[in-house]
Design a protein around this nucleic acid. Structure first.
Lengths: 197, 197
DNA sequence: CATCAAAGCGGATGCTGCCTCCGTATGCAT
DNA sequence: ATGCATACGGAGGCAGCATCCGCTTTGATG
């Protein structure tokens, strides 16, 4: 009568069920097998045909972006915590770590992410999230620069790239220890006014 | 009689011709389409069947390693130049750049390279080159540390990872300018005693 | 030069995954 | 209950990987 007609005409029932099942299954497969996982397998396990999967998500990137939406909310939550910090340098560091975790949610994720960050094709559904993240990073960088904790030459985009790199290396299966050494190297690279040795 | 029996028994003629043709064609395809290029296409263009390709190079990595051999010689040549430098910090910087160029010879190369560097399966033909490069980097690092130009906490392996990262980003099609900013960031990260701002 | 066995060749083959198209089933409104 | 728009899903065409095996080529031998 009235409530259902919010927009256009009719949101069908099975559509939403299928979409939800696909997202749930896709997330599991991305987690277990990386972003290159077989979409056919995802469809089959979700109990739908390949056609249905491709109608809902025309490209692998579209599916990836939709699954990543969930993770984005986690990231937003973390950002809320970070914003409460007094120390802008500490905030920046934690933000970088949060981005890195986000980027390494699935093995192989950094590649399509970088592709989206570079190309200004607005049809790539991963482009928007990337732009947002770069802007956010820039905020943190500027705040830390005002406090004299970060070199003036550094930009948000630089640290976005750095976080992406670390996430990529993480995804190749490198141990945690060398990874931490690399993080330190990067932190030394952008910091100013402390960490003498 | 005697000359042909250098080792074992007989180096056949077509074997060498095919091998050479495969390497030449593979290099072109790797350059143009990245390391993920179709091996079938390589075989066809080299004028051999798929079977022949796989007999010569059982895996993609094997072919890659063989093609990379050529590049390794270029790298060695560059290393000779670098060793003549007086300034160890300058030497380190140039060496990192040389490695980076080596890593980004073909798009997508850093991935199998990292896989080889991590896994201690000696059957992966890319493992040995990686180990050599890490050791070499360590040499340059130590020399620069003795001169007080590089932080004591830095290791060769860290900068190997860093160079690999930059090469990876380069391979994703990023512009040269942000790339250079990242290099600067890394240089600031390992340097000591200069680059104040 | 003719012969022979070993060594190498290459294409046919089976498999997996991608993506599309369209006849059919399904859910919603009347 | 009926009609119709909407969505389903599987068959099918395509590309690439990797293997196997009957046949050719090659170099050695007399």
């Amino acid at each position: 009568m009235s409530a259902g007609e919010l927009r256009g005409r009719k949101p069908r029932a099975d559509v939403q069920r299928n979409r939800a099942a696909l997202l749930e299954t896709a997330q599991r497969h991305f987690l277990q097998h990386g972003v290159g996982t077989s979409l056919e397998a995802v469809a089959k396990e979700a109990g739908v045909g390949p056609g249905t999967l491709y109608r809902h998500f025309p490209t692998r990137e579209a599916l990836l972006a939709a699954v990543l939406q969930t993770r984005s909310e986690e990231l937003a939550a973390r950002q809320a915590d970070i914003k409460r910090l007094d120390d802008p340098a500490e905030a920046l560091e934690q933000w970088l770590r949060a981005m890195e975790d986000y980027f390494s949610a699935f093995s192989g994720l950094p590649d399509p992410l970088m592709a989206a960050a570079r190309a200004q094709e607005p049809d790539n559904p991963l482009t928007i999230p990337c732009d947002i993240l770069i802007s956010a990073t820039d905020q943190y960088v500027r705040a830390a620069q005002l406090a004299g904790r970060v070199r003036a030459s550094v930009r948000g985009h630089d640290l976005f790239l750095a976080a992406c790199s670390v996430a990529w290396i993480k995804g190749t299966g490198t141990e945690e220890e060398p990874l931490d050494r690399l993080r330190t190297l990067i932190a030394n690279g952008y910091s100013q006014g402390d960490t003498p040795a």
